[in-house]
């Protein structure tokens, strides 16, 4: 134990982080290179679309409706401190569409989809199914990764759009049911206030988060260590990595799109 060893430990961790980021970037590069090439596994793509998009709807809807409702309550009580209760529809809309909708859907997808992709692919790795794919002349990247990443990138924006709407509706229900807002006025205010760039930014974020969530699930699954322990570790790391990367990407995208 020398004086510099804590520094060395920090340095090592930082280098390891950089190295794994580099590996993820290379993995993503492979996806981009292989995606346009034959063969295309349409059946796998279809299954992934259903698994990732359709079956995520309930959890996305519930998350959004509760968040929209809570948001309305907070803005109302916060706004009342300086007589600005009336801004509830506008702030709920902007908060949901620009930030909370994409981020919450992204995190829910990381919890639901990233984990299941990582566990499934890791189990395939551990039970030699990935090796078997290779010996059957099938590229695991093309057969397993690309359908999932494609499905994530295409469906998560839709999920975000739906989450945005349901979140705004959650705010609407609380505001009109509990806080005495006028129904027609609330909707009018929301529609007037939101701009096209707000909505576009929401969907762009959704695509980015869907890409990250599915990519990381596949990446960690393919790198899984041996045995049940390997599968567990791969799943845990996948969800943690995907969540952090989604939040970081959200910050990056927000600062790119909204800071003049």
């Amino acid at each position: 134990m020398t004086l510099t060893s804590p520094l060395a430990a920090i340095g090592r961790a930082f280098l390891a982080l950089l190295a794994s980021f580099g590996r993820i970037v290379i993995f993503a590069g492979q996806v981009f290179v292989l995606a346009p090439r034959r063969p295309f596994y349409l059946r796998e793509c279809g299954q992934a679309l259903v698994q990732i998009g359709w079956f995520s709807l309930p959890v996305v809807g519930l998350t959004a409706v509760f968040t929209g409702g809570a948001l309305a309550l907070q803005i109302y009580s916060g706004g009342s401190r300086f007589n600005a209760e009336a801004v509830v529809p506008q702030i709920v809309a902007i908060g949901m569409v620009r930030e909370l909708g994409p981020v919450l859907v992204g995190l829910m997808v990381a919890a639901r989809v990233t984990s299941s992709i990582a566990a499934e692919i890791a189990t395939m790795k551990v039970t030699e199914q990935i090796d078997a794919l290779v010996t059957l002349s099938t590229n695991p990247m093309k057969y397993l990764t690309i359908p999932r990443v494609l499905a994530g990138t295409l469906t998560v924006p839709l999920l975000v759009g739906i989450g945005d709407i349901i979140g705004v509706m959650g705010g609407f229900m609380v505001a009109t049911g509990q806080l005495g807002f006028n129904r027609a006025g609330y909707i009018q205010n929301t529609v007037d206030f939101l701009t096209l760039p707000d909505i576009a930014s929401s969907l762009v974020k959704g695509a980015a988060f869907g890409f990250i969530a599915t990519l990381i699930g596949c990446y960690q699954g393919m790198r899984s260590g041996r045995g049940a322990q390997g599968v567990g570790a791969a799943t845990k790391t996948a969800v943690a990595t995907a969540s952090v990367l989604i939040l970081a990407a959200n910050f990056l995208l927000t600062s790119l799109m909204f800071s003049q």
């Binding site: 063969p39 030699e128 199914q129 090796d131 078997a132 099938t138």
Partner: peptide, 25 residues
Amino acid sequence: MLFQGGALFDSLKVWENVAFRLLRG
């Protein structure tokens, strides 16, 4: 190749496993 553990694709039916090479590529 026959793998030691079988390495069957558990999401596919038995015949789809056997015919894997014959169904694609």
